[in-house]
Design a protein around this nucleic acid. Structure first.
Lengths: 149, 149
DNA sequence: CTCTTTGCAAAGCGTTTGCAGGCCC
DNA sequence: GGGCCTGCAAACGCTTTGCAAAGAG
């Protein structure tokens, strides 16, 4: 479990600050049910509902920052906007199977993919943040659908 | 090699048309050196230079169509715009290691990832279009960089 | 001859940014 | 106290869309 203190330490280490907003956002993602991911706007709404209004720009800045720190994963499901979820280590780390027509997504796990990702980054001297296998496909329902495109 | 005829057949099968623009765009991607990928705008410029001007909207419509047909792959390198490349089958199929700071990308191949993708789609009855492992990381140079964020 | 596709220009929309005030360390 | 961070509103830039004309089958 990644704590606020760990976040603070990591931020301060780079000359940055731990703010209430950043702490709140971290908490939200940690309490999200497994497999649930949020867009910036969904996060904005959720925070508003729970009585912690945070401006959209701060949200955008924070999720980007946390993604680059490896705390969140940025998911691109080709819907025109990004989704975010907490970046869980093994054995919670997972990947996505996505229907390009209806955007239905199914999660799945794979130790070997994670291993390959880790090894590949290492081999080139990269510092790994996240590795995700995205399978773009058409789900059974959409295969049968008559709707064009 | 995916021919114009194959494209025509596949389009007509769905009641669509093979147009000069679509044929030209397919050809461009087929002649691109391995590992090279284009954004919509880059493709637009390239076509212009080679004397085949095609409007940006047609380009957007075409790359989206071909991605959904599984002919092109849509690559998201988090630069705010998508890149496209021809979707090669085994053994040309590859994945990307991306630096989230400078966007440098390194390609790598992996039979096992492709197998896992194929199997996973199959298991859920999905029709596979593309599977890509994206490794988000920080490259050696950027790790050393003093520039914030 | 019908229905798809193109090109143009305008609209759309998620995301970024400049700036003044506020806050963390 | 200094510099980072927030919130607001405006700007941005990639992508999509409406529409009339052109073209494929």
């Amino acid at each position: 479990m990644y704590t606020s203190n760990a976040l603070k330490a990591e931020l301060n280490d780079k000359g940055w600050r731990l703010t209430p907003q950043r702490e709140t956002i971290l908490t939200v993602f940690q309490n999200l049910p497994e497999g649930k991911h949020l867009s910036a706007e969904e996060l904005h709404d959720l925070l508003h509902e729970q009585g912690d209004p945070i401006s959209l720009s701060t949200i955008y800045r924070t999720v980007k920052l946390m993604s680059r720190m490896g705390i969140l994963r940025e998911l691109e499901f080709a819907e025109g906007h990004k989704h975010y979820e907490i970046n869980q280590p093994y054995p919670y780390h997972h990947h996505h199977l996505i229907c390009v027509k209806c955007n239905k997504t199914i999660e799945f796990k794979s130790d070997s993919v994670l291993k390959i990702g880790t090894k590949t980054a290492q081999k080139s001297g990269f510092h790994l943040l996240d590795c995700q296998l995205s399978i773009h496909a058409i789900c059974p329902q959409c295969q049968r659908s008559i709707v064009p495109n």
